[in-house]
């Protein structure tokens, strides 16, 4: 894990629009950082409605889109996160950065508060 690694965990309804790998690739190239994208979907159809029981499930296992951003340098790392937030907004939950490096999480949270935080 690089010094600056963050997992941005977006749950259902969290991103302002659907997250596309092509957009993330472009952000990664623009700012010279590594970006990975994983979709996790554990919902089931129940009477025509998408449902999921999340109580007691691990944070990483419930349905979510995970964007991973990694860099050895702070400035491009920050710029890439800002670009992601501008497009999709920041994760919504306190556990939305779970598993990140300490510095990566600190920076991603700071930018979230600056751009779209509590109020």
């Amino acid at each position: 894990m690089k010094k600056y690694t963050v997992y941005l965990r977006y749950y259902i309804g969290d991103p302002l629009e659907e997250i596309h790998l092509e957009d993330l690739d472009r952000i990664g190239k623009t700012h010279g950082v590594e970006i990975f994208f994983e979709k996790i979907d554990n919902r089931t159809f129940d009477n025509g409605i998408m449902k999921e029981e999340t109580l007691g499930k691990a944070i990483e296992e419930i349905t979510q889109d995970v964007i991973t951003v990694a860099s050895g340098d702070e400035t491009p790392f920050k710029e890439a996160i800002l670009a992601i937030y501008e497009r999709y907004r920041s994760p919504r939950t306190v556990y939305g950065f779970w598993g990140s490096s300490k510095d990566g999480e600190r920076i991603a949270k700071e930018i979230a508060e600056e751009t779209g935080g509590g109020w």
Binding site: Y11, I12, G13, D14, K51, E52, T54, L55, G56, K57, A58, I59, I62, T63, Q64, R92, T93, V94, Y95, W98
Partner: peptide, 24 residues
Amino acid sequence: STYRFDPVVGYNHFTYHIKPSRDY
């Protein structure tokens, strides 16, 4: 459609923002 008190939005809020906080 993103209305805070819409039934689907409400379901997602409890399912993905509240319940997983137990694991956290």
